[in-house]
Nucleic acid binder design. Sequence first.
DNA 1: ATACACCCTGTACTATACTACAGAGTCAAG
DNA 2: CTTGACTCTGTAGTATAGTACAGGGTGTAT
Lengths: 142, 142
Amino acid sequence: MPSLLTIGRIAKLAEVNIETVRYYERRGLLPAPPRTVSSYRLYGDQSVARLRFIKQAQALGFTLEEIGELLALRVDAETSCDVVRQRAERKMADVAEKIRSLQAIQGALAELIAACALGGPEGECPFLASLEKQPIVKETEQ
Amino acid sequence: MPSLLTIGRIAKLAEVNIETVRYYERRGLLPAPPRTVSSYRLYGDQSVARLRFIKQAQALGFTLEEIGELLALRVDAETSCDVVRQRAERKMADVAEKIRSLQAIQGALAELIAACALGGPEGECPFLASLEKQPIVKETEQ
DNA sequence: ATACACCCTGTACTATACTACAGAGTCAAG
DNA sequence: CTTGACTCTGTAGTATAGTACAGGGTGTAT
C-alpha cells in the first residue's frame, strides 16, 4: 500500500526544501504527480527515493542535467535496449573514472596521515602528486 | 629546473580560463605568485598540478571551499600534526562515502546493462533501489 | 617605431541550482 | 466558522563559480 504524501511531507522525508521539489518538477527530474481536486500534488514514496538519489548524485559532482540522463535510462517505446546499454556503458566509464580519482585522493590522505604518524611534519601537499593524469600537452609555440 | 610560466601558459596547460586562474588566486586556492617588474605573474609548474587538482576535485562534488580545506592540509607553525591528522581522517570518511555511493550507482548501471542483455525491457529505474540509506525518519505527527 | 599578442586591475555579466516571497486558495481542529 | 498550517502559481532574489569586457600597460619581431 503505497502511501500518498503531500509535497511538504516528501520534502521533509527527503530533507530538501519544498521549493526544490517544485523546481525539480519544472526541470523534469521529478515526474509531475497526480493532483487532488484542489491542485495539491500527491506523491508516492518512490518520489522520496528519487529525491534522495538526486541529492546524492549531486554530491558526487553530477549536474542536474546528467542526473536527468541517468534517471532517463530505461527501455521504452522510443528507446531500444541497445541504445540504453550504450548510454549506460558510457555512464559506467564516467563513474569508474570518478572512483579512480577519489581513490587517488584517498591515497594522498592516507599518505598524509602516515607521514603525520611518523612525526615528520610536511611542507608540500601530497595531492598534487596524486593525479598524474594527461601530463602531455602539446605546445604550439616555443 | 622549474620553468617559469606566465598566466596564459599555466591556463593553457591546465585547460582552464585565464580569468579562472586569477579567480582562484582571489579565492585563496592558488597562492599569489611572484611578479615580474611589470607585475606579470610567474608560476612554477606545481601551479599547473594544483589547477588540475582543483578541477578534478570539483568534478567529484567538492566545493571550492572544501578543496581549499584539502589543499590546506599540512603541518606548519599554526597547525599541529594531531590537528592535521584529525582533519585528514574526516576527509577520508567523506571520500570513502563518496566511493560507496558511486559503487552503488555502478552496481545499478551494471544491473541495467545486464537486464538489457537478457532482452527484458525495463519499466522502473534501478537507481532508486540503489541507495537504501537513512530510511528511518521520525514523523512527529500521525 | 609600430603592430600584435600578451598581461594588468577593476567591474559587470552569466549559468546553475536553488530559495524566498506575494497573493490567493485549502483543510482540519476546536 | 474561524484560525493556523498547509498548498497553489508566478516572479524575484541569492550563492557559487566562473567569464567577459573596458581601459590601459608590456614585450618583441619586423
